[in-house]
């Protein structure tokens, strides 16, 4: 499913658009950066509570489809500027990680 459609179906707020035409492979939930580096796959939508600068670096390194900041947490302008520069999609949801992941699973599971 295309990222733009996932955003619409999940009602996500777009903080940094990046490439909305990308295909979302699957989801990945983690707040541990090394865990994401080790186990997330390219094209995954990364659901996290982390919102500092290194999130952008990790997202870029792994080529995730985007980062979803949950529970109403928003990254700083500095982080968003970095994401813009790197072309990393940053999304936000007022819902918690469980709800966002559950809905995404419902969308993507066969």
């Amino acid at each position: 499913m295309k990222l733009a459609e996932v955003i619409e179906r999940l009602g996500l707020e777009v903080l940094v658009p990046g490439d909305l035409g990308r295909r979302v492979r699957w989801g990945f939930c983690s707040d541990l950066l090394s865990d994401v580096l080790a186990h997330a796959q390219e094209g995954d939508l990364w659901i996290t509570h982390q919102r500092h600068l290194n999130v952008v670096a990790v997202a870029k390194l792994k080529g995730v489809a985007g980062v979803v900041c949950v529970r109403g947490l928003h990254p700083s302008q500095e982080v968003l500027a970095k994401a813009r520069k790197e072309g990393v999609t940053v999304l936000a949801s007022a819902e918690d990680a469980f709800e966002v992941a559950g809905k995404l699973y419902g969308l993507l599971s066969p």
């Binding site: 090394s34 580096l37 290194n54 999130v55």
Partner: peptide, 15 residues
Amino acid sequence: ELGFGAGMGIPNMEA
């Protein structure tokens, strides 16, 4: 709290 310290850094480097 920033998501470091998973104890996977060096294993990730090696892998």
